[in-house]
Amino acid sequence: MNLILEKQALPGLLQSWREQYDVYVPQKMERFSHFMPLTEESVLVTGEPHNTRIPPKALFLPMTETLVKFTRFGGYEDAQQNVQPRVVFGIRPCDAQAIQLLDTSFIQEGYTDPLWLERREKTITIGLGCHQPCHNGFCTTVGYGPFNKSDLDALLTDLGDTYLVETLSEAGEACFQDLSPASDDIYEHALEIQQIAHDQMPVAFETENLKEKLEQNFNSKFWEEVSQSCLGCGVCTFLCPTCFCFDIVDETQRKQRVRNWDTCMFRTYSLEASGHNPRPSRVERTRQRLSHKFVYWLDQVNQIGCTGCGRCVRYCPVGIDIRAMLRQAQTLPFEVSHAV
């Protein structure tokens, strides 16, 4: 269903959702924006042409969360989480796409993560399309786009004084039930804006044969060259909306076992008790990061595991640019594989 929402009416609408839901919206935090619970004083940040610093994956896979409680006599209990029904408003299409990618890892028959599943089931996601191209983003390059609808319950298009609301599920419809329908003219206009935004996104690198090139050059000097300036800080993976690795550690005093975001860019990530490390240097670790996104995700679910949000480019302290790395990878030699 296509509806029209006056921008002036948005704050009131968001507040009205609070009766039923915990509402998360992007708000100003220091120099960045961040998804935080909506309060009466909250100031919504939607006009910025860039995304929140921390991706909304944090709402589904918190940076730290308790998995298991230790009981008094050496036993273990499931940690109880208290997730209320939620609406996440203003999620950008690249980040929504990332949640869909993460679903393929966390929700699998016989191997479902119950904490992830509960949060997913209790959350309505309302997307805000990107009518202005953001800096460093490259969503169209990796096959997604600024008005991608994957995994959203509704998608908003900024039309100046109003938003076009495209509802994409029953839950999404329910959130906007009092709005009046958009005329065909307005819808056509919105589609035009969406198309222009899509066309404005630059092609950052070619994806054709990229997987084969990375696979076949597993032992190439290329990895040394592109990892040379890396500090191993891990920010590219921490802020990546599709990175989901976590560590599990025991907190003795709190009597609990927790999981924390982890990163393949750290030495200890894969370091074994024997002292052996399959990825002993930043060369192997950089190779793992890129290969996971542009080779292994494709093997697993036939989707590129990068949604082109541009955070790793924007926040790398030494200016390593995944787009430049992949452009360089495109110059590597390879043979066309004749898969039967």
Binding site: Q108, Y111, C245, F246, R259, Y269, E272, V295, Y296, D299
Partner: peptide
């Protein structure tokens, strides 16, 4: 095979061998 493992159910990421998780 063996690699460092945490979750044991193919979620935490670290035991991957290409697209395969050794644990799962």
């Amino acid at each position: 095979l063996e690699k460092r493992m945490k979750c044991g159910i193919g979620k935490c990421g670290r035991c991957n061998l290409g697209p395969k998780y050794i644990c799962k």
